[in-house]
Design a protein around this nucleic acid. Structure first.
Lengths: 232, 232
DNA sequence: CGCCGATTTGATCGTGGTCAACAATAGTGG
DNA sequence: CCACTATTGTTGACCACGATCAAATCGGCG
């Protein structure tokens, strides 16, 4: 009997590469951990001792300058992988944005296990390549897009990414209404703008009939075509 | 007899994971290709049919908006890997910045070969994880740093990255004088600023005695400490 | 209801973009 | 080797977007 048998991400996380015996072995070196919103998991610059799979919740990866400017460089969702195997240093901090549950491994244990299970490394490689592509696309947004384009692109991205996180029933298209898992400050930290700019852009889109904002965290996309036009 | 026997990156590229027999097999599915500065290798949005190892030269990876704004999302040097194995689409264009030599594979051939050679995938995974870390660190620069900080950070990065590309004799520390492999336009495309801004920052640093700029492409770091201070 | 943090709104300012002219260098042909 | 041109880089004037500072308002929670 192992935790993994009932794991909700058993078939989506990199664990999907493993058969039952292998899962059993992996289970032996991992442990579950609950995090509350705001809890840090890894600190930038620390020795990288941990890796993890996200079971539930959303976490952010951040880089900071010495004088305190922060940039969110990645957001991880259930089934995503966290941490830096085969490396000595963590280059970014990991912090829970919502209450979260992760499956935690000592890096050295994981490294050893991975080296013996090529199919696991293969899945991790595919995942890492995908993440690299996504990250590179985001660079174009950070460096070249206007505040308006950034916010529009962000909202469209959310409406796609939150599909399976939001509802039990599988849904194919993007969501037209969803709860933001981020505060305005965090949206600013993702887009590289200030909270005031995020706020102004969103209220302007509401005024223009593109969005509806029933509550602070709820977004309803009224005119998706217009939003896509703005996103560029 | 294979090309690989005399390959200058044989021991630094992912090929280093392979023994002589395996190299022989890989050699069978690859071919060499020369590129001139400016030649495209892969187009953004194309079906991803190619992957490659860089043997010599420098290439850029770019993303563009529909209206023509371009962002360089990565720069690859000798021994680096190019392309998107196990995926359908290329998310960015690849173009030679200098004359270059690459070792080219059909993606499907490479995918098959990689699946049979876990040690190759392991090297590729480590490389991809490193590249992801580097890319994420660059996001902080793009999103949060001032033009002055961007240029300073860029020059310091160059002085490290160009060490083994520049001179035959191995040198440990960063270079204090080097040739930029980029035009002002390309530097702007890397940093997410305009050519005028790059130019102004560099001439200001020259005026302040931090740099010397003997020719357009030559940079001499006179006061490294000051440059590091500015880079933040 | 009253408090506190999050968000919105407003006024002002500065960095870096834009547009334009000019300078310097590389490239080409006589 | 020099004249001519094309390309690349520099400099200046001006402007706009988004940052900053400040105040008002909203919303959650005891």
């Amino acid at each position: 009997m192992s935790y993994c048998d009932s794991c909700v991400v058993r078939n989506r996380a990199i664990c999907a590469a493993l058969d039952d015996d292998e899962i059993q072995a992996l289970n032996g070196i991992g442990r579950r951990k609950m995090l509350q919103a705001g809890d840090p998991l890894i600190w930038e610059g620390d020795d990288s001792m941990l890796v993890a799979n996200v079971i539930d919740g959303i976490l952010k990866l951040t880089n900071s300058t010495e004088d305190g400017r922060e940039q969110i460089v990645g957001v991880v969702y259930p089934a995503d992988f966290i941490g830096r195997p085969f490396g000595a240093k963590s280059n970014h901090s990991v912090t829970a944005l919502t209450d979260a549950k992760v499956c935690l491994f000592a890096r050295s244990d994981f490294d050893r296990f991975a080296a013996e299970h090529p199919s696991l490394e293969h899945k991790l490689l595919k995942r890492t390549l995908d993440e690299l592509d996504r990250t590179r696309s985001w660079m174009l947004l950070l460096a070249r897009k206007s505040a308006e384009e950034k916010v529009a692109t962000f909202l469209l991205d959310m409406s796609k990414r939150l599909v399976d996180a939001t509802c039990e029933a599988p849904q194919d298209g993007p969501l037209d209404e969803f709860e933001l898992p981020f505060s305005r400050q965090q949206i600013g930290d993702i887009l590289g703008v200030t909270i005031e700019t995020v706020s102004r852009q969103m209220t302007r889109m509401k005024r223009d009939g593109i969005l509806d904002l029933p509550t602070r965290r709820t977004v309803k996309i009224v005119d998706r075509a217009a939003l896509e036009m703005i996103a560029g």
